[in-house]
Every structure is written in structure tokens, then in C-alpha cells.
């Protein structure tokens, strides 16, 4: 049984179609890149999986469950946005995650935060944008979830931070869980991915492993991406 199974997803915003008859199956233990230009439907797809967007048609099963309270217990989502208010302290965010998520591992989080030298007592508002993003990543990855959804974690972040993100994903790797990471900075990320999914205008354009692409097309995913999505 696949970890994530979507069939016939349709999502429209007025007369614009974000997802059109989108179907995909994702097994456990994979790190998957969701690639596509802006507006292709990547974020819509990810948001549908976490339950903050409901598609007009189609079904989603996460670990066999429908999207709802039970699925949210096993899905860990990192949005592009900052989602804590500035007045909150770092320590409070740990308490919050621990309170609401049974799978949160405080020790892992504390360890990562000390590596990043983030003071627990500091207020979110006093942290730089990059540090705030790293904090959110730490919180999300410190959960022992089955599905990790990272929406553009690398956008606007310096190379050292990108390295940290990839390292965290690799360290956290588990055979029972899968990581879905949407990005357009493919060359950085390619070595870390098992499979890639290309979404073009709301449809599934490609779903292959990185190895397959290199062997069949004799090019990197980055190069193939440029070809598939050429303007």
C-alpha cells in the first residue's frame, strides 16, 4: 500500500485550473522532489495533502487515511510562510509542538537548535528571516511523522543554510517515512532525491527516479527540467 495515493485531483480557482485530473502514488522511504515552475500546481498539491485546501474532485489517502485529523497527526508541513507570531519565544514553539504533536522529539529539536546557536529565550521577532526559517525546519523535522511536506524550503536562503536543510533531511531519513520537497533550485537538491515529479500546468508531467532519468536521458534532472519547461 502506498504511503500517499491521489486519484483524479481537481482544484480550480475561478476559471484558472491549478490541478487537473492529477493522480500519483508515493511509496514509503523516499525523498521526492516536486518540481515545476511557479503556478504549476506544486503548492496546491502540497496544500491538498496537508488539508488546508480541499480539492473539488478526486481522492487523497495518506497512510490509508482520508485527509483529516488522523492524517494530520502523521503529516509534518513546512510552509513557505512564517507561522508564529513575533511575540512568541523559541521555547514556546517547542512547548507548542510537544503539546499538539505526539510524535515530536524535543531532544532532537534542542540538539539542532544548539548546533544553530539559537537562544531558546529569544523572541521570534528578534530572529533574522533565515534563522526563523531554520527554526521552523527544525520543528518540522523533529517530528517522527510519516510524511514530511516541505514547500520551497530553499527559496531565498543562503548556500550554507541550504546545506543545513539537506543535511537535516538526510539525517532524519527513515524507511517508514517519505519527504516531499518542492523547489526550483534543482541542481542543489538532485543528489539527495530518490525520485522527481514534474508538474506542468496542473498535470503530472513526469514521475521517475533520478537514476532512471540519468540512465535513459543521459542528462541531469536539472537539464531535463529546463527542456521540459522551456518557455
Amino acid at each position: 500500500m502506498s504511503l500517499i495515493k491521489c486519484e483524479g485531483l481537481v482544484k480550480k480557482y475561478g476559471n484558472m485550473t491549478a490541478l487537473s485530473d492529477f493522480s500519483i502514488e508515493i511509496p514509503e522511504g523516499r525523498i521526492i522532489g516536486i518540481l515545476g515552475p511557479n503556478g504549476s500546481g506544486k503548492t496546491t498539491f502540497i496544500k491538498s495533502l496537508c488539508g488546508i485546501l480541499r480539492p473539488e474532485a478526486g481522492t487523497i489517502r495518506i497512510d490509508g487515511k482520508e485527509v483529516g485529523i488522523e492524517s494530520k497527526k502523521v503529516v509534518s508541513y513546512l510552509p513557505e510562510r512564517p507561522y508564529f507570531s513575533s511575540a512568541v519565544r523559541v521555547k514556546d514553539t517547542l512547548d507548542f509542538f510537544e503539546d499538539f504533536y505526539g510524535d515530536f522529539d524535543r531532544k532532537t529539536a534542542l540538539h539542532m537548535l544548539s548546533t544553530l546557536q539559537i537562544d531558546l529565550k529569544s523572541k521570534i521577532g528578534s530572529l533574522s528571516k533565515g534563522t526563523r526559517e531554520k527554526l521552523q525546519l527544525v520543528l518540522v523535522m523533529s517530528r517522527k511523522a510519516k510524511v514530511y511536506l516541505l514547500d520551497e524550503p530553499m527559496g531565498g536562503v543562503d548556500p550554507a543554510a541550504r546545506d543545513f536543510i539537506l543535511k537535516t533531511i538526510l539525517t532524519n531519513y527513515s524507511e517508514d517515512a517519505s519527504v516531499l520537497l518542492s523547489t526550483h533550485l534543482i541542481s542543489d537538491v538532485e543528489k539527495v532525491l530518490d525520485d522527481v515529479v514534474f508538474i506542468k500546468r496542473g498535470r503530472l508531467a513526469l514521475h521517475k527516479s533520478v537514476d532512471e532519468i540519468r540512465m535513459e536521458e543521459k542528462k541531469s534532472v536539472d537539464t531535463l527540467f529546463r527542456e521540459v519547461f522551456a518557455c
Binding site: 522511504g29 538526510l170 539525517t171 531519513y173 543528489k191 539527495v192
Partner: peptide, 14 residues
């Protein structure tokens, strides 16, 4: 495998 993957910054399955 995990340590090597981390060192090389590649996917553990790879």
C-alpha cells in the same frame, strides 16, 4: 550507509 550518505550529501537509497 546513513553516515556515508550524509558525508557525500546523497540520498541514502542511492
Amino acid at each position: 550507509v546513513r553516515e556515508l550518505a550524509l558525508e557525500a550529501k546523497v540520498n541514502p537509497n542511492t
